[in-house]
């Protein structure tokens, strides 16, 4: 099997995720798009791990899964907090950082 199969799949998923991060208004949806990006990275890591015949890629894929779980936990907690404070999780209404 061509390694490019997997790498291109990863690239496509990554770009779809990037589009989601940019285009979505709902904070939960942005978090979902970030999950897409993280998964595409994992596919790449595992593909290279198999190509080179060592397990480092597997190890880091596991680490990424763990970090993603932490990220979702904190991210959703923040979304909840934001929701509680302003009764909305639309990112368009969050513009405290406006210069």
């Amino acid at each position: 099997m061509l390694i490019n199969n997997f790498l291109l799949l990863g690239a496509v998923l990554f770009c779809i995720g990037v589009y989601g991060v940019i285009a979505r208004k709902n904070a939960v949806m942005v978090l979902m798009s970030i999950e897409l990006i993280l998964n595409s990275v994992n596919i790449n890591l595992l593909a290279f791990s198999m190509l080179h015949g060592n397990v480092d890629g597997n190890t880091f894929a596991l680490y990424i899964i763990a970090v993603a779980a932490a990220e979702v936990g904190v991210g959703l907690a923040m979304v909840l907090l934001i929701y509680r404070n302003r009764k909305s999780i639309s990112l368009d209404e969050l513009s405290e950082m406006k210069g």
């Binding site: 061509l2 490019n4 770009c15 940019i22």
Partner: peptide
């Protein structure tokens, strides 16, 4: 939202170019 389309397509273009160029027909064991 429309801003996302060119950015994503640009990234996809760059990445596929690099990948196809770099790993042409490398096969997995």
């Amino acid at each position: 939202a429309i801003l996302g389309v060119p950015v994503a397509l640009l990234m996809l273009g760059v990445m596929s170019w690099v990948l196809i160029d770099g790993f042409e027909d490398t096969r997995l064991p």
